[in-house]
């Protein structure tokens, strides 16, 4: 395990007591979001209460994993050694069907082919032995 952690050269997420269920779910290949038991709101990033009604009756529940590209950028400059080999690499903001937006990398699509509104679906990327990331790819069969 330790060797694998050392081999992973990209930045790791800042996992806290608040967002740990999100990262644990990804290890199980599940994308989850918090949901309010009172008003039904879904949101990201993790919060200790419902941002709309401040209810504490909240739970982590599966998300569809489907969304659309809202905006995106392409890095041509290196900031992290772990990303050097991938330059130019994309970072996209994906709006999930449930509403919240996630930052992610799109895979299976060239930087020049990314379009606003493009339909995408989650791909679970086992980046390291103890880390799975939610990446996205163009949705199969989508218009």
């Amino acid at each position: 395990m330790a060797a694998n952690q050392d081999d992973y050269a990209k930045p790791r997420p800042a996992i806290s007591a608040l967002n740990r269920p999100y990262w644990d779910a990804l290890r199980r290949r599940e994308l989850v979001l918090q949901r309010c038991g009172e008003c039904g709101m879904r949101w990201y990033p993790a919060a200790p209460l419902c941002p709309r009604c401040w209810s504490r009756r909240i739970e982590w529940t599966p998300a569809s994993g489907r969304g659309r590209v809202n905006s995106w950028v392409v890095f041509h400059q290196s900031y992290f050694r772990g990303f050097d080999a991938e330059i130019p690499y994309n970072v996209a903001e994906v709006e999930l069907e449930e509403g919240p937006r996630l930052l992610t990398n799109l895979i299976g699509v060239g930087a020049g082919e990314i379009r606003a509104g493009m339909e995408v679906e989650v791909v679970f990327d086992d980046a390291a032995a103890d880390l799975t990331l939610a990446k996205f790819r163009p949705r199969r069969g989508a218009a």
Partner: peptide, 15 residues
Amino acid sequence: EAGGSHGEDPVFGMT
């Protein structure tokens, strides 16, 4: 925690 104020998310190289 909860991300940078300019949208930073270094996990995906967003910095």
